Computed example of a mutant assay.
Amino acid sequence: MSEEMRRAVGTILEAGFQMESEAFKTLVEKGRVDSLKPLVDEVLKMASLAQPRPLFIGADLVLRAAEQLDLAAGPVVPVEGLGHGRRFAEDRESRLEVVFDPTGKLGTTGALDDFLRYFRSRFEKMSALFRQRIDTRSAGTISDALAGGTNGRGRFVAMVVEKREKANRIFLTVDDYDDEATVLVGDSNPSVWQTARRISRDQVLFLETRKSSGKLLVAENIVLPEIPDHKPGRANEEVYAVLISDVHVGSKVFMEDAFGRVLGWLKGEVGGPDQRHISDHVKYVLIGGDLVDGIGVYPRQEVDLKVPDIYEQYRLAAKLVGEIPEHMEVVLIPGNHDAVRQALPQ
């Protein structure tokens, strides 16, 4: 992207607008070096007068502004400007396809039922995986294990509600739909002990236990869910997708210098021959959540923010994302810090 075009896009972003990709292409087509600034000024004037005020600058608005200024198509502002010639991925057609759109299907009001539905869904899915295995398919319930009498054996799937470690013992509070119990894991069985040390809260697991007193069960075996074998799909040509996540623009710990180096690498300006070869083949950039740090996501978040305004966070983020080369498809996936998703209380 040339310096003139970079300034033009920056002016639009600083005015509080976002640009659709087609609007950018139209700006490139209609804006000559000598007319780019007047065109941008006219676009901003028309956008500011529109009712309601738009959030995004579209291609139609750029076309109307060009017609108002009577701009005919002419030599365009150069947008490559890297001095490396055409890059491999530039000549490859994008094959990006949305196979599922969750718009309107995901969300939460923050009510208790939403949390219950989330955890129950996960518990049910993990239970189904255990019941497909030969060694765990005969699982009962916590109630069955507690009803077995002293030294009675139990086999069940449960979720870990709490974990406490004390000396050479680990206490797991586990729960299923019907009941709750405490499971004791001692170091007398090293393999079970080591498995228990890796367990975290909210994890779903299969337990074989022996009944002790009250609601205390002693673990004799713990089985963790296995990740099914998965053969990744591969493209029939050498194009790459780059995954970036948890950028957190606006936070005091946003790694601005490191992110700048990533942008430089994507442009082909950073790295040795092998790294430049890889960046030349990048066709897709996926930003997997938390592009900005957000506002009010957790108590006293304001003390961790360098930019305490959500709109300014997105303006800065848009500038950074705008530096990604134009031939790369950018996919933004919202996370719990992003403004389009209601943050869950923490």
Rank of each mutant, 00 (worst) to 15 (best):
K306Y: 06
I142R: 09
V303E: 14
E326G: 05
G272I: 00
V183H: 13
A158G: 11
E226M: 05
E3K: 12
L55W: 00
V204W: 04
E302Q: 12
L344V: 15
F130I: 03
A219T: 06
G289L: 07
N168C: 08
L263P: 08
K166P: 08
K306G: 13
R341D: 12
R164E: 13
E22A: 14
R131K: 10
L27I: 03
T141A: 06
R86S: 13
V192A: 02
R261P: 01
L55Y: 01
D114I: 08
S138H: 12
V79L: 09
P232S: 02
V62W: 04
I278Y: 07
E326C: 04
V160K: 10
V249L: 01
S200W: 09
G271I: 00
T103Y: 06
G296W: 02
L116I: 14
I244N: 03
L291R: 06
G271E: 02
E93W: 06
E238W: 03
A145K: 06
D113H: 11
P273R: 05
V40N: 03
D246W: 04
A343M: 05
E269K: 08
L82W: 14
T26K: 11
R201V: 15
R122H: 08
E269Y: 05
M328L: 07
K166M: 06
S21F: 07
R64V: 09
S21N: 12
V98F: 06
D135T: 09
R153G: 09
V330R: 10
G148D: 06
V157S: 01
S138Y: 09
R276Y: 05
K283N: 05
G296P: 03
G140I: 09
V253P: 01
G81F: 11
Y284S: 12
V297C: 15
Y118F: 13
T26C: 12
Q18L: 13
K252I: 03
R120W: 08
V79Y: 02
L266K: 02
I57R: 09
L63N: 07
D101R: 00
T26F: 00
F115L: 11
E22T: 14
R169N: 07
E67Y: 12
F24V: 15
S127T: 07
G58S: 12
E326K: 05
L286M: 15
Y311T: 05
E238C: 01
R6C: 03
V285D: 07
A241I: 01
V9T: 01
Q342A: 15
G294Y: 09
T108G: 15
V247N: 01
H277G: 12
Q194G: 02
G31C: 05
G260N: 13
K252C: 01
G233A: 11
Q313K: 01
F88H: 10
P232L: 06
K267T: 02
L106V: 15
A196I: 01
L13P: 05
A89P: 00
E97Q: 13
A167H: 14
L55G: 09
V303R: 14
E20C: 10
R86E: 13
V262D: 04
H327M: 12
V218W: 03
T141Y: 04
V160H: 11
E256Y: 02
E29G: 04
P299L: 08
V282A: 04
D187T: 02
H248P: 01
S127K: 04
V40W: 03
G322M: 03
K25G: 13
L243G: 02
V282I: 13
H337R: 06
Q51K: 10
L146H: 03
K125H: 09
V43N: 00
G140K: 10
F206V: 02
V303K: 11
P334W: 00
L61K: 02
M159R: 15
F88Q: 07
